[in-house]
């Protein structure tokens, strides 16, 4: 699939580069030789039918596959040119610099403040309480949640609405100022209004982060992403600028998928 390796947005530096990444769960291969270059400060969407390997690949980027028994990852994956599957790379450090947002909002059973402060606290990023307050406020601002929750930071995170919870989780992820943010179908559990809010937010965050989003909805991919990668049966089928993929797909499978013939 080497022909997929190209940088669709040539003006942006490459953040993440994958070469021949394979993943198997207890011997069952889930991802076949994926190679891809993902640019910084833009949104890259992974689309494809369920079980196509897009989430699996996403979970390779912060080594979340380590937590699954029997998962094996092969090939080379670099962030800023550094091999992340290398023995010398600590998953804790990696994950601190690669934030992740999940399908279902998963705020911890703590207050809103403590949720956002979780990362800075475990990593020891704030030396004093005012410093921590500042980090939390910044993160909530960036996540566009500050106005809604500034008066009830001590309330439990689970008391927020679904969309707010998802933004809280995003705030939690950016509180440690990561380099890459992974989003695994972040809007699939939300109503359309909350979804629109999140999409707006993703667009704003693009300024500062490399964002990779897995989505089921092609409309969403078209709306928020600059690059789109289409996965099918564990293979990366096609990758390019979002416009090209949606208007002029090269592969028939891509075409069938985006025209709704399967998926």
């Amino acid at each position: 699939m080497t022909d997929a390796i190209h940088n669709p947005a040539d003006e942006l530096p490459i953040k993440v580069a994958a070469r021949d990444v394979t993943v198997s769960y207890s011997g069952k291969q889930a991802l076949h030789n994926v190679s891809i270059d993902i640019p910084d400060r833009s949104v890259t969407a992974f689309i494809g039918p369920s079980g196509c390997g897009k989430s699996t690949f996403l979970r390779c980027l912060n080594r979340m596959n380590d937590t699954i028994e029997g998962a094996k990852v092969g090939g080379s994956l670099t962030i800023d040119g550094q091999e992340i599957n290398d023995k010398s790379i600590d998953p804790v450090v990696l994950r601190a610099s690669v934030g992740m947002v999940f399908q279902k909002p998963n705020p911890f059973p703590k207050s809103i403040y403590d949720n956002v402060a979780y990362g800075p606290r475990i990593h020891g990023l704030a030396l004093s309480r005012p410093e921590l307050d500042e980090i939390v406020e910044n993160a909530l601002h960036k996540a566009g949640l500050w106005a809604e929750v500034s008066d009830r930071l001590a309330h439990p995170g689970t008391s927020l609405s679904g969309g707010q919870q998802q933004r809280l989780v995003i705030a939690r992820a950016i509180a440690v100022n990561p380099e890459v943010i992974l989003m695994d179908e972040p809007c699939s559990a939300l109503d359309p209004i909350a979804t629109a809010r999140i999409e707006e937010l993703i667009d704003e965050l693009r300024e500062n982060y490399c964002i990779i989003i897995v989505t089921h909805s092609m409309q969403q991919a078209a709306r928020v992403s600059q690059q789109t990668a289409f996965f099918h049966m564990g293979n990366l089928v096609e990758y390019g600028p979002t416009e090209d993929i949606f208007t002029n797909p090269r592969d028939t499978r891509t075409q069938d998928y985006i025209t709704g013939r399967f998926g």
Binding site: N62, M64, T67, P91, V92, V93, L94, R95, A96, G99, M100, F102, K104, N106, P107, F108, P109, K110, Y118, G119, I122, H123, V169, R172, A173, V176, L182
Partner: peptide
């Protein structure tokens, strides 16, 4: 999902247990 959330933040196992699972 709570465990995943914590690990994805870069928490170690004991931090996840002590700060997320136990509460």
């Amino acid at each position: 999902s709570l465990r995943d959330g914590s690990y994805a933040m870069g928490a170690t196992k004991s931090e996840t247990i002590g700060r997320v699972i136990m509460p």
